[in-house]
């Protein structure tokens, strides 16, 4: 196990001063269609970072490049001081894709076990961690249910738990709160805030602009570019708006102009 929950800065090849997640002129084209357009991004360690923007604004593509599932067409991306796709510290990142991407023909517990084993966790700590996460996603009673028998929201929660089983340094969550009821969503955000307090970096994409207010830093994306970035409060002040949704609309108009 590489991740000890300690400071990421101890690891070779990673300066704490540099962001945990960095993009320089990052570009991704699909058959001539530009999905990510010379994106510059720097997310510091211990940040709860929200990426907001409409469908097709490049959020998911950016994350897929960061976790090594897509090759950039141009530019550079670094995670934990390593060029993507990262190899050395791959066990220090966690990823929850937008699609369910868990084994529906296995039980909740078996899914968690599989991911734990892939991160070479020892049975003892893995079982402890499983308990912790099952409580967090409120699925303790359903641990022996096949995932295929769960509701959509529950499946999403299993998927979230799987991405966190190994307590990663950097967590990429692509729309983690879709289909999660409001009460539980509050619990999730509390958990993300706790992670941040422990020095973890959490990058979340979301459609729900209201919940992005809870992020330390929000990056607004449009057409593969970052059109605005800052603390939620600042963003609202800069646009003289009272919520992030209006702020986003204002930045979009300015960008289009």
């Amino acid at each position: 196990m590489k991740n000890k929950g300690g400071a990421a800065g101890d690891k070779p090849g990673f300066e704490d001063g540099e962001g945990s997640v960095v993009a320089e002129k990052l570009r991704k084209e699909f058959d001539g269609l530009v999905a990510v357009d010379d994106l510059d991004l720097s997310i510091r360690r211990g940040t709860l970072y929200g990426m907001i923007g409409p469908n097709g604004s490049g959020k998911t593509t950016t994350i897929k490049i960061m976790v090594g599932r897509l090759k950039p067409t141009g530019g550079r991306a670094r995670v934990l001081g390593e060029d993507v796709p990262i190899v050395e510290r791959v066990a220090d990142i966690g990823y929850m894709p937008q699609e369910m991407a868990i084994y529906t023909e296995l039980t909740v517990s078996e899914n968690l076990q599989l991911f734990g084993e892939l991160y070479s966790m020892k049975p003892g700590p893995r079982a402890e961690r499983e308990e912790e996460l099952l409580s967090m996603v409120d699925l303790r009673e359903r641990r022996h249910s096949l995932v295929s028998q769960l509701s959509g929201g529950m499946k999403h929660r299993v998927s979230l738990a799987c991405s966190m089983i190994h307590d990663p340094e950097v967590l990429f969550l692509d729309e983690p709160t879709v289909g999660v009821d409001p009460e539980l969503r509050v619990g999730f955000w509390q958990h993300f805030t706790d992670l941040k307090a422990r020095g973890k970096t959490v990058i979340i994409t979301t459609h729900y602009m209201d919940e992005a207010v809870r992020c330390d830093v929000v990056g607004m994306m449009r057409q593969g570019r970052l059109i605005a970035e800052g603390k939620p409060k600042e963003l609202m002040e800069r646009t003289s708006t009272s919520n992030l949704e209006d702020a986003f609309m204002e930045f979009s108009w300015r960008d289009a102009a």
Partner: peptide
């Protein structure tokens, strides 16, 4: 098609 293969490949496996 479900994306599990892609997900597996973001782990150390």
């Amino acid at each position: 098609s479900t994306g599990t293969l892609d997900r597996l490949l973001t782990t150390p496996v």
